[in-house]
Amino acid sequence: MKFNRLGNSDLKVSDVCLGTMTWGIQNTQQDADEQIAYALDKGVNFLDTAEMYPVPPNVDTYGDTERIIGNWISRNEAKRSDIILMTKVAGSGLKYIRNAGPITSDAVTNALTYSLERLKTDYIDVYQLHWPNRVTPHFGKHWPDGADPTKTNREKELDGMRDILMGIKRALDEGKIRHWGLSDDTPWGIHVFLTLCKELDIPLPVSIQNEFSLLHAKDWPYLIEMCELENIAYLPWSPLATGMLSGKYHNGARPKGSRWTLAQRMGLFRDKAPAQAATAEYVKIADKAGITPSQLALAWCKQVPGVTSTIIGATTMTQLKENIDAFDMTLSSETLEEVHKVFRQYPLGF
Score class of each variant (00 low, 15 high):
G63N: 12
N58I: 04
I68D: 03
R75M: 09
D64G: 05
N71L: 13
P56V: 06
D64Q: 10
G70L: 15
I68C: 09
N58A: 04
R75N: 12
Y53F: 12
A78K: 14
P57I: 11
P54I: 11
P57V: 12
K79Y: 12
R80D: 01
D48W: 06
E66F: 09
G63A: 11
W72M: 01
I84F: 15
N76H: 12
A50W: 06
E51T: 03
N76Q: 10
R80F: 06
K79G: 02
K79F: 13
D48P: 08
L40G: 05
P56N: 07
I84K: 06
G43E: 02
R80H: 13
Y53P: 11
A39D: 06
Y62E: 11
V55T: 14
G43F: 02
D82A: 13
D60S: 12
W72Q: 00
N76F: 12
V59K: 09
Y53G: 12
F46Y: 13
G70K: 15
N45I: 01
L40T: 07
E51L: 02
F46I: 06
D48F: 09
E51F: 02
R75Q: 14
E66L: 07
D60E: 15
E77Y: 15
F46L: 09
G63V: 11
S81Q: 12
D64P: 04
L40D: 03
L47K: 02
V59Q: 08
P57N: 13
D48I: 04
D82G: 08
N76D: 10
A78N: 06
R80W: 04
L40I: 12
I68H: 07
P56M: 04
N71F: 10
R80K: 11
Y53M: 13
I73W: 15
I69G: 00
I68G: 02
L40E: 13
T49Y: 07
E77K: 15
Y38K: 04
P56E: 07
V59D: 08
T61M: 14
Y62V: 15
P57R: 11
W72C: 00
L47D: 00
I69D: 00
I69K: 00
I84E: 01
E51V: 03
W72G: 00
S81C: 07
L47M: 09
N71I: 03
T65W: 04
L47F: 12
T61Q: 15
Y62K: 13
R75C: 07
D64N: 10
I73Q: 08
F46M: 10
E77Q: 14
A39T: 05
I83N: 01
K42L: 03
L47Q: 02
Y38G: 00
V59M: 05
A50C: 09
D60F: 09
D41C: 03
A50M: 08
Y38F: 14
G63S: 14
I83G: 00
W72P: 00
V44G: 00
S74C: 13
N45A: 01
P56Y: 06
P57M: 08
S81W: 14
T65V: 11
E66D: 10
I68F: 05
G70Y: 15
G43L: 02
N71D: 10
W72Y: 13
D82I: 10
Y38S: 02
E77F: 15
T61A: 12
P57H: 07
P54V: 11
K42E: 05
N45P: 01
G63Y: 08
N58M: 04
F46A: 04
I69R: 01
A78Y: 13
I68N: 03
D41A: 04
V55I: 14
F46E: 05
F46D: 03
V44K: 01
D60M: 09
E66V: 11
E77D: 11
A50P: 06
